[in-house]
């Protein structure tokens, strides 16, 4: 169980990992997430499920190396097992009967947004996808997203692919051009500032905007409260109340300051791990000693 069957580098530091997880695959729906641990010393890291195959009993995870824990996860090879993998967690996406939706994916957000876009496309909703990245070499799954979209707009910060600029520009244009009000919803998944500005962009148009939050978590089952966010002035738990919320109601500044809590420690741990590759054998020994 939890064996890595296939590992592919999709773009610089972005990995696609296919994992054997029949029980999770059986129940997975778009929007669900899992919590993974690389080894017995690892952090518990929440990752949104990017795809699933019920027949093969596998789920697909996509993650970008941004710190010690993601670096450690990226160092697991095909045939290795995650120390822990639990899920599917959170509420699945609510796929509403809409005429047209705009899916805005920022960076690695292209992965979790894909199964949601596909679910909309399969029920007959017109999907417009705006996919942004810093530069062309960080884009991935453009073909997958294009295959479920009636329109697929790419933006890069440096103009190396698609339009130069931010995802919020084509998003605003889509909404401004929608004179018949056919766009019934917007999804924005990506880095927190990107989701914040997407929500700010759609607010004047009064189009419901769903965001999927990547709060810091431990258990992922409502026990610890580390992932709490302020939504419509109420405290909610991302793991059991989300991870998707109304982007117009999220207190973004509070979320971002909570995400910065461990900034210094994370930077330190990342530098340490980059310098000294983790001895995985020791971890496996420890795992055998600790597990019942």
């Amino acid at each position: 169980m939890s064996t890595i069957l296939k590992k592919t580098e999709l773009a610089s530091k972005i990995w696609q990992i296919e994992v054997e997880a029949p029980r999770i695959a059986e129940k997975a729906l778009p929007g669900h997430f899992v919590v993974v641990m690389a080894d017995a010393f690892g952090e518990r890291v929440p990752l949104t499920i990017a795809d699933f195959d019920r027949q093969a009993g596998t789920i697909t995870l996509v993650m970008m190396v941004v710190g010690a824990s993601s670096l450690k996860l990226s160092r697991l090879e095909e045939g290795d097992e995650f120390y822990a993998l639990i899920g599917p967690l959170g509420h699945p996406s609510e796929i509403k009967p809409l005429d047209r939706v705009v899916m805005v994916a920022g960076g690695v957000g292209a992965a979790p947004i894909f199964p949601i876009a596909r679910a909309y496309q399969q029920q007959g909703t017109e999907v417009v996808t705006v996919q942004g990245a810093r530069s062309a070499d960080l884009l991935f799954w453009t073909d997958r997203l294009a295959s479920v979209s009636v329109e697929h707009v790419i933006t890069t910060d440096d103009g190396s692919a698609g339009r130069r600029g931010l995802v919020t520009e084509p998003l605003a244009e889509q909404l401004a051009a929608d004179s018949e009000k056919r766009i019934g919803g917007v999804y924005a998944i990506g880095p927190t500032p990107m989701m914040k500005f997407c929500a700010k962009t759609t607010e004047p148009f009064c189009v419901p905007t769903v965001v999927s939050l990547n709060s810091i978590m431990i258990d992922g089952t409502g026990m610890c409260g580390g992932c709490r966010v302020t939504v419509a002035k109420k405290t909610l738990f991302t793991c059991v109340d989300g991870p998707e919320f109304d982007g117009h109601q999220v207190d973004w500044d509070s979320l971002m300051s909570r995400q910065r809590t461990y900034h210094t420690q994370e930077g330190f741990a990342f530098g340490r791990m980059l310098a000294e590759p983790a001895p995985l054998n020791e971890n496996i020994l420890l795992r055998q000693n600790e597990e019942v």
């Binding site: 952090e43 580390g226 909570r258 741990a269």
Partner: peptide, 27 residues
């Protein structure tokens, strides 16, 4: 919901289960 405000479950789970007292040996 300010940074540095923990619920006890999270604080204790980080230290006890995840062994945050032994950071950075534990992540």
């Amino acid at each position: 919901n300010l940074g540095g405000v923990y619920l006890a479950n999270e604080y204790l789970t980080r230290v006890n289960l995840m062994r945050a007292y032994d950071f950075p040996r534990y992540d």
